[in-house]
């Protein structure tokens, strides 16, 4: 057989310096190659055939992850044009929408991805419930999933305030007003959340820091653990072959 273009590139000096591994032919070699790959190692090497189809998962996990990546990419773009202060925030959004290349479009992507991610994560949870996939040995991964849902809601909620328009301001006012009803420490919780008696510049800064720094880092870590446990639990599942 004639070597393909990829094979020829791999043969060159530069190619050999990038692709360390020899060609993988046998199942064992292919499995080893999977393990050795940085990007693939969060995935299991093999899964049961029934897990492949749309009906099994509706692909809601990977859909949630895709939306999250879309949110990171669009969110970083938005950060270049945004200062979290009541005097600048609203003007920044207007400038973004009218004068920044693709500004309105990227903001739309961020907004709609955010709403869709909340829907996708909730649907993912419901699908996992009905499939009974929270049962042993996967109990704790379900718990991490609940944490991920809460984090997703918090991400969405903190981001909601940032445009500093009437919609944002009053939605957050309503949402945070509930904190005051927490027994015994209601006032303190409210103070911690808002940085004052009402939604103000301190709140905007707090929500911004939570939204772009703290929550995303925690969310990424939780996702990584979620995927890692998904891989590990797969081999513990009595439903599947214990192989490779």
């Amino acid at each position: 057989m004639k070597p393909t273009v990829t094979e020829r590139v791999k043969e060159t000096t530069v190619g050999r310096s990038i692709f360390r591994v020899p060609d993988r032919q046998t199942p064992r070699e292919r499995a080893e190659g999977h393990w050795a790959n940085f990007f693939l190692h969060l995935y299991p090497v093999k899964i049961r055939r029934e897990e492949l189809g749309f009906r099994y998962s509706w692909y809601l996990g990977v859909i949630s992850l895709t939306l999250f990546v879309s949110l990171i990419v669009s969110g970083v773009y938005l950060m270049f044009f945004y200062v979290p202060s009541p005097t600048t925030a609203y003007g920044n959004i207007q400038f973004l929408q009218t004068s920044v290349p693709f500004g309105q479009f990227i903001r739309n992507v961020h907004r709609w991805s955010a709403h869709l991610m909340v829907v996708a994560v909730m649907a993912h949870m419901a699908k996992v419930f009905y499939r009974g996939a929270y049962k042993p040995p996967r109990e704790f991964n379900w718990v991490i999933g609940v944490v991920l849902l809460v984090l997703t809601l918090l991400m969405s909620f903190t981001g909601y305030l940032l445009p500093w328009d009437q919609l944002a301001y009053w939605a957050i006012t309503v949402g945070t007003s509930l904190a005051a009803y927490v027994p015994f420490v209601g006032k303190q919780v409210s103070q911690l959340l808002l940085g004052g008696p009402q939604v103000s510049s301190a709140t905007l800064l707090r929500f911004y820091v939570l939204h772009v720094a703290m929550l995303p880092v925690i969310l990424v870590m939780a996702i990584v653990i979620h995927l890692w446990r998904w891989r590990k639990d797969g081999t513990l599942d009595p439903g599947g072959e214990l192989d490779v």
Binding site: P27, R30, A31, H34, L40, Y43, P44, V45, K46, I47, R48, R49, E50, E51, L52, F54, Y59, V62, I63, L65, T66, L67, S70, L116, G239, G240, E241, D243, V244
Partner: peptide, 24 residues
């Protein structure tokens, strides 16, 4: 048959790529 193991690459990853691109 439905419980036999198959390789994640390419069987699952191709499907994930399609789902991912579809959503995007």
């Amino acid at each position: 048959a439905r419980q036999r193991l198959v390789f994640v690459w390419p069987h699952l990853l191709v499907r994930h790529a399609v789902a991912s691109l579809g959503v995007l």
